[in-house]
Amino acid sequence: MKLISNIAAWIFGAGLVGLALFVTADVIARKFFGLSFEGADELGGYVLAVGAALAFLVALVVRAHMRIDVIYARLPVAPRAVLDWVSLFTLTCMAGLMVWLGWKMLRDSMAYHSSAPTPWATPLAWPQGVWLSALALFFLITAGSLIIATRDLVRGRWREVNARFGSSAEKDELDAELADLKRRR
């Protein structure tokens, strides 16, 4: 899972850097040479759509999806594990819903031969197809995590559930920041 998440992060990051370069070239060309590549806007939209789906996945794997833990943090480990499982379950539902809705979007776009009203006149089915695949990957990871969490929960391994799927975003993040700061200095 860590590996998939790292690969997703690289695709996401490389997409952003590529987009940034393209847009920069476009802005400079527009300002100084009076020509526009056209399509930077459109590309930006697609990079975000696909990138967001990948980023959902990364955030899931590093447990960064925002949860408000005022009460949670004060509970014993067993109820915490149950809440972790419920949280994961709701995220899985959300991912499943997005895949289902994304599939319907794609199906309609194919049926209507919809194409973007832009210079590239991109058939919408292409970006939406890639987008849907990324969403599906996000769903698979949530569903896989849910299976593991269910198994651990049924066996009463509260600590494992908590350690793998619990909300400790701030603590994790802080530890990572401190480690990185050491590396930099």
């Binding site: 527009r30 009076g34 020509l35 526009s36 056209e38 806007d41 832009t118 210079p119 006149a121």
Partner: peptide, 22 residues
């Protein structure tokens, strides 16, 4: 440089020698 809001206008501006900017 001409702001346009859809592709057919962009084509038209192009044909007049202008640069369409969405």
């Amino acid at each position: 440089k001409v702001r346009v809001f859809d592709q057919s206008m962009a084509n038209f501006v192009d044909s007049l020698g202008g640069t369409p900017v969405p």
